[in-house]
Amino acid sequence: MIQTRRKKLSEWVQQLYFVGPALFFFVLIVLIPFVMGMYYSFTNWNGVSNEVTWVGLDNFIKIFTDDANFANAFGFTVKFTVTAVLLTNAVGFGLALLLTRQIRTRNALRTIFFLPNVIGGLLLGFIWQFIFTKGFSAVGEATGIGFFNLPWLGDAQTGFWGIVIVSVWQGAGYLMVIYIAGLINIPNELIEAADIDGANFLQKLKNIIVPLIMPAVTVCLFLTISNSFKVFDVVYSLTRGGPYKSTEPVTMDIYFEAFTNNRMGLGAAKALIFFLVVATITLIQVVITKRKEVQA
């Protein structure tokens, strides 16, 4: 009797010791704010006063019927995500194909292509602000190529493509590493068999390579979709959402709503919608691409 009780107590102490700290910090920093955020999204809290009034669905009605900023930011984010996901994966996959050839500078090149990824989005945005505004115009003057003489970051179009260029430059190397890991696992016999059958490169790509690297595709799509939806740092330092909010992603709209306009309730409602959209889209993507995974 006493022994089983002591054993039970010891089990509880162990549970507390091993899981307690992780669970405590997780609940404090993630779970409580998450639940509070849901509550605030139904209030008109301004972040300063203690007065928090329940307003029901008012924030959501406002967001969907009378909030041009959110609609624009959402449109920008979707357009950016589609473009950045496609381009980053294409470039990352292309680099992986290059670096799985028998070239001698493979390791050095892999380091170079990965390098932009270790620098944070904020500093990268500042670096590219200089490249776009000063570097491009210098190259444009020297060569006369129209591309470099565009008003980079000065209007909605060049601002958008500026952010896309920086994101692709930053993210491609990371995806390249994952795609390389997928590519080197493809059995040589399969490629050789296809060569003997006279398959050209595109046929091999479509029928052998892509189906066999679907696990890598699942991961890369997940990473790029969720990172593109969450884009903030690069935009913050590159265009700060400008000119005239034309390059403002949802994250920045939430940020300004909460910390500049002091409309925490409205910001929390936007944040909740943002969470639901990101969670739904990434889950759908993982389910779809997982289904396409095959064994070699």
Partner: peptide, 21 residues
């Protein structure tokens, strides 16, 4: 399950109440 589910929560969607907490 909570740990796994929390991985899809974007930071920006909880940053407002986080500052309060």
């Amino acid at each position: 399950g909570l740990f796994v589910a929390a991985m899809v929560i974007p930071f920006q969607s909880i940053m407002i109440p986080l500052v309060k907490v």
